[in-house]
Design a protein around this nucleic acid. Structure first.
Lengths: 345, 345
DNA sequence: TTTTATTACGAAAACGTTAAAGTGCATTTT
DNA sequence: AAAATGCACTTTAACGTTTTCGTAATAAAA
């Protein structure tokens, strides 16, 4: 194995001190032109590169930012990462991705590891289990230790840090509103248990739209999916009662795609009998039959904004630095699971 | 901001030397029980954790491994990462994920960055542009520098390193064979340009199956998709000639899902008129109508095996260490885009 | 009583880098 | 001629850790 070239080795080669070499390579005026040129040529020839580990230790920073996400097999999160990665690269930062797998314990472990000097700042989307436990001390401690933290998508309201969230409520409202506009008046909601913040927000948007149309909330039309059980079975109840919905808003793509499948099995046609709108503009939506109308979340933008805020905090000297919560707007991507509206007002 | 606690600070607190503290925390027999207990209690109280950067520098290793993938918005790669991450975690390693975005230049940059002491080893799947350029010097140099490297999925045959590949040829053969078995005899292939190694391998498997059935290769039935153009348009040609296929094997999920859409637009029914099999067991396959029969690739297993090989190489002292190429078997996941076979032989 | 162990700690080097401060010599200024 | 300046380096400290080696003081063995 070829040994790595270091300042020390170059110094020995030229019979000068290490700092002479360091300065020569930085083109310092303290070093004579002749020496500089010879050292630079030598360093170039041997592909000298300052050792990152040494620099990290000296500078007390790593030019690396950490990202903790609950799941990587999830189109939305990969989109966010794409956004983070792109900007990070432009700014000379590396990205370290950790998976919490929706587990509280793993989130804590990841956080501890990253906090230990490994990264200059952290971007995180909270694990479901953590939301369920409602225990956020690991984040508070991080903030107390002065490590910049940005939360995105699944954020903790009371946490004192920068946040980026999609306009979940607005998007849900938009979706429900669209269903009304298309003539539906028995609109069902398929959502997650309430401890999932985004699910809660989307439900709020759905309620808001119902209210604006003076519709009462029909509990039979609201399914809180328990992912430990069969999703299809839970959704089947929608099509068995005496009040079968004519519109369905699902808080994610999988639920939306699954409910279309179930509806078809019950003999209903989408969008003629039932219209469906999902959340998250993932890959599946385009390939279902019919393709799914969704609320687009702009994951890339979200990732980019999160990193922007993080770098902002890392770079700031301002002792009065104020944390922001940035809202990413959502909008409808109309496909074929909703009817084409002929006369729009 | 709370200052990080270090050995130095603890030493000052107790009026002892740094090395005493270090030894005390390591429960060394050189230190008296009393001093040890006091120091340990103090350290515990203040959550002392050795600074990773310092350890990295001292040990000349980081307990981190780097992964370079072409795309993260890709179910297969996320599966692989899941596999890597899981095992890495069990073994006390961190994972640093870099994206090449299929770009040669970014791959080189990522490699340089990682090679510079940041990671103990690298797992990589080669970017398309690199395969096209056919320039692998950055990898050779890495190997020359003694940095452990494992290639997966898109590997470079001539590279002297550990490799993990899916049995692409075998899987493609299996798929084509299945179509024959179901009664197809005009089987089309939708593939990538030849420089993509996996596409080439899968084509080989397709050819092999054709040969075994004494079928000639019909160039009209082979579409090499150029991703810069419209995929749908390129696929349309399949349904316009005088020899319309009754079976289609596509080398990935997107092509398979898209060709089903196009076929439907041309009035054909899948699987009654045309049967379709895709490659990669992604998310889309389950939600298309009909759901897609695919060749499952076992991404997780692949990631796990890649990391296993990497750690093997990192840990080995053996100067005669032999590189291996591990083949991950593929198998068919039958869904509804192929006919149910009634009488299997 | 002298030598040898043992105990319990400290000093220093090492990982590779940077930057402030120091040094010896030549040149310029007063 | 003395003082100040400039040049081209070197020395040293620092980042935080581990580990080898050294060394006082005490205790045990000769």
């Amino acid at each position: 194995m070829k040994q790595k070239i270091t300042l020390k080795k170059i110094a020995k080669e030229f019979g000068v001190s290490i700092s002479t070499v360091s300065k020569a390579l930085k083109d310092s005026h303290e070093i004579s032109l002749e020496v500089k040129e010879r050292i630079q040529a030598f360093a170039k020839y041997y592909h000298y590169k300052p050792n990152s580990l040494a620099l990290n230790l000296r500078n007390q920073k790593t030019k690396t930012i950490g990202v903790i996400i609950p799941e990587i097999v999830h189109h939305f999160f990969t989109k966010v990462i794409t956004g983070i990665e792109k900007l990070a690269n432009d700014k000379g930062y590396n990205v370290m991705i950790c998976l919490s797998n929706e587990s509280y314990e793993k989130e804590v472990l990841n956080l501890e590891m990253l906090a230990n000097g490994v990264v200059d700042g952290i971007i995180v989307s909270v694990a479901k289990e953590t939301e369920e436990k409602d225990d956020y001390r690991h984040f508070s401690e991080l903030i107390n230790n002065g490590i910049p933290l940005v939360m995105f998508d699944r954020v903790v309201d009371q946490m004192n840090c920068n946040k980026v969230i999609a306009d979940d409520k607005g998007g849900a409202f938009l979706a429900t509103e669209q269903l009304f506009k298309n003539g539906c008046n028995k609109i069902a909601l398929i959502t997650t248990p309430d401890y999932v913040t985004v699910g809660r927000e989307r439900k709020e948007g759905y309620f808001k739209a119902l209210k604006e149309h003076n519709m009462a909330i029909n509990e039979d039309h609201i399914i809180e999916v328990d992912e430990k059980l069969s999703i299809e079975e839970q959704l089947s109840t929608l099509f068995q009662g005496d009040s079968i919905p004519d519109g369905i808003f699902a808080v994610n793509e999988i639920y939306a795609a699954t409910v279309m499948k179930v509806a078809r099995n019950f003999g209903f046609h989408v969008p003629d009998d039932i219209e469906v709108i999902g959340f998250t503009n993932g890959l599946i939506s385009e390939f279902t039959t019919p393709s799914l109308t969704t609320v687009a979340q702009h994951g890339r933008t979200m990732g980019q904004k999160a990193l922007e805020l993080l770098l902002d905090e890392i770079d700031t000297q301002d002792p009065e630095y104020q944390y922001k919560t940035h809202l990413i707007k959502t909008d409808l991507k109309i496909r074929n699971s909703t009817k084409k509206v002929q006369f729009q007002n």
